[in-house]
């Protein structure tokens, strides 16, 4: 195992984060604050409690998930796409690092960045609403799994994309709608029967539900089902990454 190689990639990626602090940390914090002001305070004050939790507090897990998902995707996707785009990938490919080590370096850095962001948003939220976390360990576990799962997914997108548009395609057109329709801002119990059934096909619902359960012990689906779903997603992404390196898809001509 070439740990020095993994660390070199990890450090390089974290340094990139450091250079784009405004875009990667400040901007999500501002947008989260805006969500709290609009949904939590302005609209939320006119909404009754959801499952015994004030609306402002109810949306906190969903908001964190929204940021974790989109940021994990775009960080990891950009992290591997950019060296491909400017050609510096030659160095990674000719170095004595395995596919696993390359993935660990890039995905590890993207996941770390998302985790930091999740913690920052959580801290921001605590200024607006009284927070209680029923199962802190479970919460952390969901957060870590989600960060790694979606960073892996982003890594796959970054390898698949051959232009900047494709890089943004899935985060914007697939993930954002799925998060909004995945019960981030409501419980699916509030939906008519038909839409509730449709929602059950949305994978993000399971993430948000499990994560919210770790805060308030209220959930749309059983937390165990949530855990299974995210583990399955992580496994599927790992499998795809393995296949990508095995076949050299878009990496080794």
């Amino acid at each position: 195992m070439n740990w020095r190689g993994v660390y070199a990639i990890y450090r390089f990626e974290m340094a990139r984060t450091g250079r784009t602090l405004l875009q990667s940390i400040v901007s999500p914090v501002i947008s989260t604050t805006l969500y709290f002001v609009v949904f939590g305070s302005a609209i939320g004050s006119r909404i009754t409690d959801v499952g015994g939790v004030s609306y402002g507090a109810f949306i906190v897990p969903g908001l964190i998930m929204l940021s974790l998902l989109t940021q994990s995707l775009s960080n990891a996707a950009f992290g591997i796409y950019f060296p491909r785009f400017i050609g510096t990938i030659y160095e990674i490919l000719s170095a004595p690092v395995s596919a696993f080590e390359i993935t660990l370096g890039y995905v590890g850095a993207a996941a770390t960045k998302s985790l930091m962001l999740g913690v920052i948003i959580l801290a921001t939220a605590s200024f607006f609403v009284p927070l209680e976390i029923a199962h802190p360990l479970a919460m952390l576990f969901f957060m870590v799994l989600t960060c790694f799962g979606f960073s892996l997914f982003g890594f796959i997108i970054g390898i698949w994309a051959d232009n900047f548009e494709k890089l943004q395609l899935i985060p914007l057109l697939v993930i954002t709608p799925l998060v909004f329709l995945g019960g981030s801002f409501y419980s699916i119990d509030m939906l008519p029967d038909v839409w509730r059934t449709v929602s059950l096909f949305n994978p993000v619902l399971y993430l948000v539900s499990g994560f919210r359960w770790s805060f308030y012990e209220i959930a749309d689906v059983s937390p165990l089902v949530s855990l299974t779903a995210i583990t399955f997603f992580l496994g599927a992404c790992l499998m795809i990454v393995w296949l990508i390196f095995k076949t050299g898809y878009r990496i080794r001509a």
């Binding site: 020095r4 190689g5 390089f12 990139r16 400017i86 050609g87 510096t88 160095e91 990674i92």
Partner: peptide, 24 residues
């Protein structure tokens, strides 16, 4: 390599040290 593939924002010292690390 033939083409000038370099990062833009890294310093010379860091980019050279990066390669050494990458090679373990």
């Amino acid at each position: 390599p033939q083409e000038l593939h370099t990062d833009a924002f890294e310093t010379v010292w860091n980019t050279v040290s990066f390669t050494r690390g990458l090679f373990g």
